[in-house]
Structure formats: structure tokens, C-alpha cells
Design a protein around this nucleic acid. Sequence first.
DNA 1: GATGAATGAGCTTTCATTCAT
DNA 2: GATGAATGAAAGCTCATTCAT
Lengths: 209, 209, 209, 209
Amino acid sequence: MELNSKQVTIIETAEKLFADRGYDGTSVRNIAEEAGINVAMISYYFGSKEKLLEALFSYRAEGTTQKLVSMLANKVLNPLEKVNMMIEYYIDKFYNQTSFHKIMSREQVASRRSAIAGLIQGFKKRNQQLIKEIIQEGQKAGYFTKNIDIPILMSTLIGSISHAVTTQHFYREINNLQDMPEDQFQKMMKKKLNAHFKFIFKAILTHEV
Amino acid sequence: MELNSKQVTIIETAEKLFADRGYDGTSVRNIAEEAGINVAMISYYFGSKEKLLEALFSYRAEGTTQKLVSMLANKVLNPLEKVNMMIEYYIDKFYNQTSFHKIMSREQVASRRSAIAGLIQGFKKRNQQLIKEIIQEGQKAGYFTKNIDIPILMSTLIGSISHAVTTQHFYREINNLQDMPEDQFQKMMKKKLNAHFKFIFKAILTHEV
Amino acid sequence: MELNSKQVTIIETAEKLFADRGYDGTSVRNIAEEAGINVAMISYYFGSKEKLLEALFSYRAEGTTQKLVSMLANKVLNPLEKVNMMIEYYIDKFYNQTSFHKIMSREQVASRRSAIAGLIQGFKKRNQQLIKEIIQEGQKAGYFTKNIDIPILMSTLIGSISHAVTTQHFYREINNLQDMPEDQFQKMMKKKLNAHFKFIFKAILTHEV
Amino acid sequence: MELNSKQVTIIETAEKLFADRGYDGTSVRNIAEEAGINVAMISYYFGSKEKLLEALFSYRAEGTTQKLVSMLANKVLNPLEKVNMMIEYYIDKFYNQTSFHKIMSREQVASRRSAIAGLIQGFKKRNQQLIKEIIQEGQKAGYFTKNIDIPILMSTLIGSISHAVTTQHFYREINNLQDMPEDQFQKMMKKKLNAHFKFIFKAILTHEV
DNA sequence: GATGAATGAGCTTTCATTCAT
DNA sequence: GATGAATGAAAGCTCATTCAT
């Protein structure tokens, strides 16, 4: 789907508001006002509020899978290095697209907007398949142990990052970091989370610490 | 707060609907219809829709902290056994109160309903403090390594379980388990998650696998 | 109608609230809360909200006419003295029963609550008849000029006092009297209004100043 | 504020209903039905029911003050003639805008809708200031006596006319004029009231009859 | 005699969407 | 292609009153 600049503005405004207030907590009027456009434009360009949400998913999901593909096709890295790369990639992705992931983590729970649920499910399935392949590659090559439950492992990665990102303010508060500048805080968190998950994945995949 | 049986019915109906459709996606009329009561009853008993949500939080949160306290006051268990107990406890809690935790994970993201945000934050802070104490106890006794970032560790536990629970249907699908009876599935998942997190926590806390 | 003390409490609370917020702007719950009684009591004692308003009118109107009658039956005073007495009486009445007169001046405008409209109309008719008699007595005795339009004269008295009383705060403000104690202010106003209306009535009735 | 024809329809319908039933006694549905428009239009055009009332005040008040100003700037008339002109003006105004004045006299009593209360108070203050100027002009020129309490004098004019106008039906009944055509009745009343108030004002201002 | 519980009807306002231009 | 005007439907909440006890 080709998007003109006005459509992109709408989508990105919607993303911000959906993340802050939820899909149902955001009205098309809110979006229109924030984006500085006419209310009718949303129906005009996207057909409906729900279709706008779908468009947002397509907009953000596009590229993700292909990046994962190209990254994992790398011939030089060994399986553990690939896994570490994937960890880095996910942490970056969540921090760079916080709003989008807030929406996604909310929407995958709700069973109502089926078109969206289908999109998310398909998206996650594709990505998990890719990751499964690296891990199996590592298992075949003798790097990784057998009996690894990949969905649970991915839940650990994605669920944890998601939780950490969406509750950043809580982390700041509990550690008295309210005044640390956002970029410095993010840099620190990324570093900590990278070390944390690389340690965990190594332990699980190789039974070594 | 003392609740009569009608109030409990309303709260539990609301819990189910809020979990399925989100707070903003659920109308008080939806709740009233589902609960088989008059719409006006919700305002009558709780004052407003938002106060109903608060009542739901009190209703579910009540007892949790005190269970955690009593459980951890145990004098017989060593720190690692206590940590394992806590892991079991959280996994049970999420499976027994799935709806409630879906709501909580959504609501802690949204920044708007401040009364709720405050409740959740306070609740989590109290619980983290308790867990911190066990871990510090283990550190003093020489069981656990130093430099453990407790909020990140708890994000890993809670974020992961939450993610696993809220995306069960996805786990079933990816493993072709759509036909497994719910209780059998749950039993299996609990067992897997227990093993998974006990392994992770042991690795992180003791640097042994 | 015999009223017990609880009924009187309700009526007097209702009077205050009706005066401040209007009949439709006051809910039976407002009254019940303010009076410290159960909501159901209002229907229980008076039948309905509207009947409560009627009861209030009866409660306040009772005695007024008979006071007027007895006052004007006085054999010693001359007609102008009687008129002056009536002026004093009305000014006192408005100041002593401000709330009630606020309600009455509002309700006589509304055409909806017909039972009330009828009560007010009958009440005013009776009183005007009495006043008409004094004035005619004065005319027969040669004290007063002919061609006096009594309803217009009474509108001048009642409309003016009512307006002055209901806009007291405005009078205070325009004259920078916000800090004058209420009783002192009232005393001053009564004196001024008495002089003012006695002057006007004398001018109209006797063509002398 | 520019008003389109639909907005004017809404305002004038609201005026009629507010006058008959009071602000709180009139629902936006009543207005919408009577005006033949959709309920949502009222919020759409005015924002809220209360803002509609404010719009009505602006709509009616607009022009009043400036008419008063221009009228009183007249260089040819002497002060008493100006006062008489003002009396004529007020009587006309009340008869031509009966509904509006019913609402205003009700609303200035209620202390709740503060935006409206402020509008009314400001409006009256401005007008009283203008009248004060003519009277002071007359005093300086030796036409009028000293010690005139202008707010009380204006209460007499406005309170009386207001009372007379809002209780016209009573005047008709008491004088058996129920069958007189409205315009003829009004013409008669205006004439009577003019004579009445010109007489009173002359008496007060000049101490002559 | 008195009242807490309950309710249908109504309130004002906002919703996403459509339509005429 | 773009938009201001308009709307039916639904939102959350309050209303006066009734009823079982």
C-alpha cells in the first residue's frame, strides 16, 4: 500500500494516541485534532477507524520480517552470535518503536478486532519460524542442547522486553532515576537488557554460564 | 470493603469483559446485560465505571501481598527454595486470575486513569520490596551472587508469564494443541514454565546451571 | 395539613435548595442528603416531589392572608397609615422569607406545574382583594385620588422588592458593601426601601410629595 | 459571533422553552424536537447546553447597550426627557423580548451557572452606569434632587416591569380581559406602564407630581 | 412507620461515519 | 480530491419513584 505524506501523518499521530490512551480510548476526533486534519479524512483515506489500525500495523510490520531474514542469512556468524544479534535487534526494535509495541501488546490480548488479531498472529508466526530455524541450525551443529521450547523462550524475550519498556517509569522511580535524561536512560537500559538476555539465552541454549 | 453477592457478580462480569474487550471497549450496558442486572446498579453500587475498575483491583489484589509475606516468612526454606516458591506462586496466580492480569497488564501501560495507575504501582512496589528482601537474604548468606538487578529480573518473570498466558491460544496453534482440554493444557504449561523459570533464576542468582 | 417535625425539616431544606438551584435543578437526593433523611421519605411523606413543593407553598402561605386581614381591620389607622403598614409588612416578609419568595417569583412564571400556578394565583388574588379594599376605603374617604390601577401598583411594590431582594449581592457590589454584616445590611435596605415605597405610594395615591 | 440560520432557530426555540419551563426543566431533546433538528446539533453548534444559554444571552444582549448609549448621547433632550425615553425603551424591550427577560430574571437568582451569572451582572452593571450618568447630568444641571439611590430606582423600574410582564395573564384575569387580542392588550399595558413610571420617576427625581 | 435496594426512563454528550458540495 | 455539516446510535450517569421488608 502506497501512503502519501498526509496518510503517514495520520498513522503516526494515531500510533502515539493509541499507545497512550488505547484504541478504544482514542476517538477519530482526537487523532484529527492532533494531526491537524479534518475528521472526515480518516474515513476518507482509510475507510474506518479499524482499517486505520490495520494500516498502522502494515506500516510498522513492513520490513521487520525481511530485516530478520537478511540478518539471519548471515554466513559468517555462528548460531550463538546470531541469537545474540537477534536479542540486540529486538531490544532496539522495542525501544525505537515503543508506541507501536505498546499497541501490539494490548491488541494481541483483545479477541475482538479479528482482522488485527490475524495480522499480529501471522506476523509473530513468521518471525518465530525464522528464529526456530537458527536454533535448530545450532542444535544440528551441536552448539545448542536439545529440548528447547522455542515459543516459551520467545515469550521470555518478548514478554520481558515489552514489560520492561512499558514500565520504564516504574524502573526509574524505584531506582530514583527520574531526572536522568531519556537518551542516557535508554542507553543504560539497552546495555543492561542485552547483557541480561544474552546471559539467559546462553544458559538455556548451551547450559553454560 | 464489604461486597454483597450482587456486587461480586458485577465485578466478576466486568473482569471478564474488561479482559476480553478492554476497559474502554466495554460499556456499562455490556456489563449489565452480561451480569443480568440493571444498568443503574453499577453506578448505584460503585459510583462510576472507573470506580468499578478500582473495586475490581481491590477485590483481586486483596490477600496477594499478605500471602507473599507469610510465604516468605518461612523459616525452614533456604533462599533458593523461597525463590522457587515465589515462581510457583506467580505462575499459579497468573493462571488462576488470567482475566485480571490481562487487565492489569493493559492498564499499567495506559497513563490516563491515574487512580488505577497509582493502585497498580503501589501494589507492584510493595511486592518487589518483599522479593528484594529474600534475594538480599540469599546474598548475605552467600547463596546468591552480587549485582542482581531485581526490577529487571522481576520484569523477566512477570513479563514472560504474562505474555505466555495472554498468548496461550498462539502456543496451542503453533504446537497443534488446539484440541487438548483446557485443564490438561494448563497443567502442562505450568510445569514447563516452572522448570523454565527455576532454571533461569538459578542461573542468574547462583551462576550455576 | 398537620406536619410532624421531620416533614418540617424536609420542607425547610427543600425551600433552601429550591431557592438556590431552582425546582428542576434540585433532586430529591439533594434534599434527602441535606436534610439527613432517606430518599424514600420524600415520596413517603409527600407523595412526590411536586407535592412537596405544594406542601411548601401551603406551609409558607398559611397565616399570611390572615395577618393581612387582621392588620387591615384596624380601626384606628387612616388609609395612608394602613398602606404604609402594608408596605412595611411586605418588605419584612420578603426579607424574612427570601428563599420562599425566590421560589415563588420563579414559579409564577413557569406555566408547567399547574397545581402550583393555581395556588400562587389564588393566593395573590386574595391578597390583592384586601389591598383593593383599603385603597377604595381611602378613595371613598377622599384621601386618595381616583383612577388607581391596583394591579400595576402592586406589581410595582412586589416586583421591585422581589427584584431588590434577589439581587442584593449586586447592590452590595455596586456600592462596595461586600463586607457589611448581613443584619446591618438588611436593616439599612429595609429602611431605604420603606422610605422609597412610602414616598412612591403617597405620590400616586395622594398626588402629594 | 456569527450565527447561521440554523443556530438562530435553535437559540430562539431554546429561548421559548427556557422561558416556559426553565433552563433545568428543558431538555436538549425538547429543544431539538421543537426546532426540528437532531439532538447532536446542539452540542455540535454550541458545545453544550450551558454554552447554548450563553449564546442566547450574547444574541439578545448584543445591541442593547449600544442602543442605550446612542440614545442617551442625544444632545437635544433634557435629562427628564432622556429618563422618559429610557423608561419607554425598557418597557418596549420587556414586551418585545418577554421570553428572554423571563429567563434572565430567573437566572440572575440562581447562583449556580456562574458563566451566566457573570454575563448578566456585567450587562446590568454597564447599563446602570449609563443611567447613572444621565441622572448625575440632571443633578448637575439642577433638574433633579440629590440623594437618589440609583440601584433602588432601577430595581423599581426593572423589577416592576418584569413582574408586570411575567404576570400578564393574572392582570387579564383580574380585570376580565381574557378575550382582548394580544396586541391590543399590549398596547394598553405599555401606555399604562409608561404613564405610571414616568409619574413615579418624575416624583422621585424632581419632587413634583 | 420507615427504609435500603432496586429500576425504567431520561439526561447530556460523544461517537464513527456519511453526505452534499 | 477534499471537507464542513450533519446524524443515528450509543456512551456514562442521574432521575423520581416503587417495593419488599
